[in-house]
Computed example of a mutant assay.
Amino acid sequence: MDALLPYRAMAHNNAWANHRLLSACLALAPEEFTRRRTGFFPSLRATLNHILVIDHFYVDAMEGGRLGPAAWSDPEPCTTPAALQAAQAAVDKRLIALLRGMEAAGLERIVAVHRGERVQHERMDRLLLHLFQHQIHHRGQAHAMLSGSPVAPPQLDEFFAAGEAPLRAGEFAELGWTEETVWGRPG
């Protein structure tokens, strides 16, 4: 088995889930996007921007950058769902490209994560798992917040089910993917 396949699949899953969630948010009135809600962050805008900001922080480190805490100098860089969707798609593409260009041995590479006062050294595989968990955690909160809005939250947990491939085909086309893009050649 390709050791990178699960990580590549998770990167695609994150991009797809972000696309689905942010596409739903496009239907929100501006006041619904910023309305105070129960969650770790006080609104959909704040929660979804947090995902973006932390993605910038970690993807930059994985790419060998030194962005560090400057990543969160503006905790809400995107004020609209459309701007957020474009920015999130760009960082999701960077993560997918990083994993596509990596060899399996790259999972053991030590990544320098610049945290301001110190540099954390972490294995790539562990950092990826942390990033995926972070995204899922906060996307779940945003999903719950969306449940309390006039817009129905999208289904986010069917990405890995093979029987759902026909339902994903249109969204995958929007993202420039096919099932083969995500999973490789069948067989």
Score class of each variant (00 low, 15 high):
128 L>D: 06
111 V>F: 08
171 E>I: 06
13 N>A: 09
84 L>G: 03
91 V>E: 07
47 T>P: 10
134 H>A: 05
36 R>C: 08
134 H>K: 03
133 Q>I: 08
183 W>I: 04
148 G>H: 14
66 R>Y: 00
107 L>M: 08
148 G>S: 08
170 G>V: 03
166 P>D: 09
179 E>W: 05
102 M>A: 15
76 E>P: 01
157 D>E: 13
5 L>V: 05
91 V>H: 00
163 G>L: 09
10 M>Y: 14
166 P>Y: 07
54 I>W: 14
167 L>I: 00
40 F>K: 01
115 R>I: 04
121 H>R: 15
85 Q>E: 01
144 A>Y: 04
168 R>Q: 14
97 A>T: 10
109 R>A: 15
34 T>S: 14
56 H>W: 15
173 A>Q: 11
6 P>G: 10
53 V>L: 10
128 L>S: 05
166 P>I: 04
160 F>H: 14
47 T>Y: 09
183 W>P: 04
83 A>M: 10
106 G>S: 07
152 A>F: 00
37 R>W: 07
1 M>H: 13
27 A>I: 00
165 A>M: 07
114 H>Q: 12
35 R>V: 10
60 D>H: 08
3 A>F: 07
166 P>E: 07
39 G>T: 02
159 F>I: 01
118 R>P: 00
64 G>T: 05
14 N>T: 09
185 R>L: 13
157 D>N: 14
59 V>W: 08
165 A>S: 11
120 Q>S: 13
113 V>E: 02
123 R>S: 13
71 A>C: 10
72 W>L: 09
53 V>S: 05
161 A>I: 14
32 E>V: 00
32 E>G: 09
169 A>G: 02
156 L>Q: 06
18 N>E: 06
70 A>H: 09
73 S>T: 13
19 H>P: 01
67 L>C: 06
148 G>Q: 12
65 G>H: 04
117 E>A: 15
3 A>N: 09
113 V>F: 00
7 Y>A: 06
47 T>M: 13
165 A>R: 12
134 H>T: 03
8 R>M: 08
134 H>E: 04
187 G>M: 06
69 P>N: 04
69 P>A: 05
64 G>I: 07
89 A>N: 05
132 F>Y: 15
171 E>Q: 14
52 L>D: 06
122 E>I: 15
145 M>E: 03
32 E>D: 15
174 E>R: 11
145 M>C: 04
120 Q>C: 04
43 S>H: 08
177 W>F: 04
16 W>F: 15
8 R>V: 13
145 M>D: 01
84 L>S: 05
118 R>K: 11
68 G>A: 12
93 K>Y: 00
61 A>K: 05
121 H>K: 13
100 R>Q: 15
20 R>A: 11
47 T>H: 11
183 W>D: 06
10 M>T: 09
160 F>V: 06
158 E>M: 12
160 F>G: 12
86 A>E: 14
17 A>N: 11
132 F>R: 02
22 L>Y: 08
34 T>R: 12
21 L>C: 08
177 W>D: 06
102 M>L: 15
113 V>S: 02
16 W>S: 02
68 G>F: 09
54 I>H: 11
166 P>K: 03
14 N>Q: 09
115 R>P: 00
16 W>Q: 06
56 H>L: 13
100 R>K: 10
154 P>F: 02
10 M>G: 01
31 E>T: 08
18 N>M: 06
25 C>T: 03
98 L>K: 01
6 P>F: 03
68 G>P: 10
81 P>R: 03
144 A>L: 14
171 E>A: 10
48 L>V: 07
102 M>T: 12
